[in-house]
Design a binder for these strands. Sequence first.
RNA 1: GGACGAUUAGCUCAGUUGGUUAGAGCGCGUCAUUGACAUUGACGAGGCCACAGGUUCGAGUCCUGUAUCGUCCACCA
Length: 744
Amino acid sequence: MAGELEKNFEPKGVEEKIYSLWEKENVFTPKIDKKKKPFTIILPLPNANDPMHMGHGMFVIEDILTRYHIMKGDPTLWLPGADHAGIETQFVFEKKLAKEGKSRFDFDRETLFEKLKEFVEENRLTNKDQLKRLGFALDWSRYHYSMEPEIVERVLETFMKLHKDGLIYRGERVVHYCTKCGTSFSDLEVLYEEREDKLYYLDYGPIIIATTRPETIFADVAVAINPKHKKIKELKGAEAIIPLINKKIPVIQDELVDLEFGTGALKITPGHDAVDFEIGSKHRLKTISVVDRSGKMVNVPEKYLGLKVLKAREETIKDLKAAGKLVKEEPLKHSVGTCYRCGTVIEPMVFPQWFVKTKPLAEPAIKAVKNGETKIFPQKRFEKMYFDWMENIKDWNISRQIVWGPRIPAWYCLDCNDSIRINFLNKKKEVVSGPYKEIKQSYSFEEIKSGLQSLFSTGDATYQLKDGSCQKCGGPNVIQETDTFDTWFLSGQWPVNTLKANPGDLEYFYPTSVLDTLWDILFFWAGRMMMVGLYLTGKVPFRVIHLHARVVDKFGKKMSKSKGNVIDPLVMVNQYGADALRLALVLGVGPASDVSLSDEKVRGMRNFTNKLWNIGRFIIMSSKEQGFQRFEPGMPGLEEVDRAIIESLNKLVKQTTKMLDNYRFGQASEELFQFIWHEFADVYIEQSKQRIKSGDKTVLAVLFHVYSVCLKLLHPFMPFITEAVWQKMFAKNNSLLIKESWPS
RNA sequence: GGACGAUUAGCUCAGUUGGUUAGAGCGCGUCAUUGACAUUGACGAGGCCACAGGUUCGAGUCCUGUAUCGUCCACCA
C-alpha cells in the first residue's frame, strides 16, 4: 500500500496539487443536514485591493477550527469574501492618479466610480489565490464581494428598514473632516497624536481666554466660564470683545469649562469644536464656520480670506501681537486628532451628515454579551473594553464624501432645495461650484447631472427615498445624494447579507459559530456586526468572538513598510512551505498577544515538517522488509513500551481535542510538536529499530497506528504535508485525510 | 485624565482552577553519524519567574503597592 517517499519533503508544487484535490472533491462546501449542528465562520473580508500580508496569515486559526470541525463531521462553512474598502481604496487610487498628474477633480463622479471599479477588478482575484496558497479551507462557491449588486441591494434594504424605524437621521453636528481626503469620518477613524503646540492667551476685554487656535476667533459666539470662577460676580452679564474685529459676544456660564485650565475661561466656537458645539446648542448660540472643506478660511476679514488654516493662524497671531491683544503664550502638550489615512490634522466642522442612532442598537448588543449569548476570548480583558465602548457609544456617522461605495439612497429636488451647493464638470471640463439657484442660470439640469461631482445639501433640505420626480412639487430635477456609505456600514451586516445570498443558508448557518479577528477592529467591525446583526435578525451574529495574536517582527516590533521589517507570507511559503509558516504563526502563541515571527522560527518549523515526513519514510522503509500488520488494542506481542506510547497517544488525543474546543491553539500545537518529535521519534522510534531488525511485526503495527493518529491530529495545523503523507501511506482508493474522522 | 495588559533562559515567547527538580523555538558549547531525517542525534551551559510586602502547609500562578514598557478610551480649549 505504501509508496516511496523522497528523502525530504518538498512543498513546492505538492501544495497546489493537494489543494486542487480538496477542491475537486468539494470538501470545503458543506452538506446541509438539518439533523446536525453546523459550524460556521465568516472570513474577515480582506480588502479587495490589498495583496496579502502576514496579518492574513493569522486566519490560520480559522482554518484550524474549520478543518477540525470538518473532521468531526459537522456541516462546516468558512465563507470567504472581499471588501471594496471605500476610503482605503480611493486613497490608493488617488495616489495612482496623482502619479499620472491627475486628481479626483478631473472627473465627474460616475466616470471616477467606473475607473475605481476597474482598478479593483484588476486586483480582486490576487488575494483569493494567495489565501489558497496558505491552504485555507474556504468555501469558494460562496465567495462574495461587498460591491456585488445583490449585496449592495441588501445594504440599501437595511438602510430603508433603519429609516423606517426612525434610526436614521440627517443632522448638523460636529464631524471629523479631513480636508485632504475630502471626507468626514466616524469617531473611530480619528487617530489622536500627542503634539507640542502653543497656548495663546488673548485679551477679550473684561476677561482673558486661552486658545490653541487663534485663527478661529472670528467664529466665536461667546465666552464661557465655570460657575465657580472667582470672578463670576463681576463677569455676570458682561460682554467680551473679540480682538481684531471688536465684536461683542456674551459671557455665559457652563460647568463643562475647566476651572484649572488656562484662565478658566473658554471661547465658544461651535463651528469648529465638539465641546463648544455642545455648549453652544445648550445655550442656543449660533454656529459660524470660518474654515471651508478645502481647509481655507471663509467668513473672515478680507486679509485672511482664502488662507490655509495654519497660515491664517500665523497671520492672526502676528496681528494680535501688533494690536497688543496677545497677553502671553506658553507651550502645551495635547493630543490632536489626525486622519488615520493620510495624517492630516482633522478639522472639526459642522455640516449635515447621515447618522445612525446607535443607543437602541447598542443595548441588545450589550445584553447579548452580558448574558453569554456571545462570548469573548480572552474574556477578562476584552469584555471590559467592549462594554466601555458600547455603553459610551455615540451616533454613527455613516456618510462619506467619497465616490467609491454605494451611494446613500436619498434624492433631493433641486427646485425645492435650491440652496444645495453643487460641484460639477461642465461640458468644457471645468469645475463649476455654487448653489443650484445660481448655477441653474447658466447650466441646464442635464449638464449639471451628467457632470456631477458632489453636492452639499443644507441641514433643512427635504429628501425622498426614491428616484423619480419630486414627491412634493412634482418637478423632474431630482438628484441623488453623492455621499456614500461608510465601508463599515456594509461590513457590519456582512454575515447576514452573505448568508442571505444562498437560499436556506441564513436559517441554517446563522448565528455563526466564531468570529476570529485581531482586536484592532473589535469596535469597527465586531461591535457593528453585533448591533446590526441583532437588529436585522434578533439573533447574535456569532457565538464566540476569538481575538487572535498580532504578528510582529523578531524584536517584538510592529511590522510596517516604513520600518522595512515586513515579512511577506508568500515569500515564506515559497521558501519553507505553507505548513511551516502556519505552525510558526500558532505554536506556543497565546490569544490576543503578540506573535513574533522571524525567518529562523519558520525555518525551525520547516525542520519539523521534515521530521514528520521522515518518520513516514522510516516506517515505509521498515515495513518494506518486514510486511505490515494492523494494530489492535489488545494484540499479542505488545510490550510495555508499546502500551506506554499508546497511552501517551490517547492522552494526546484527549488533550488536543480539549484544547481546540477551548481555543488554545498555541498549546495544542506545542504538545503535538513535543510528542511527535521528542517522544515518538526520539525515544520510541529509536528503541524500535532493534525490534524491527529482529523481525518484530507488532512494533510496526504500533508505528503505523501512532503515526496515522498523529497525522489526523496535526492535519488542521499542517494540512498539506499531512495530506501528502496520507496519500502515500494510508489512503484507500485515494480517500482524503480531510475526510477522515477526528480521533477519539 | 481614566482603564487595561506585559515584565519568566542570550533573543522571541508558552506556562487554564496555586502542588514535586520552571518549559519551547532559535542561538551557544562538547561529542556522534554515509541505511528515516545534517532540515539529524546525544549530552550540556544558561533563570533569586521586574522589585517590595502580604495570604497559604505550599505562589511564576492569588492580593496590595512600586518601577519600566506597551495598548485602548476621553469634550486637555
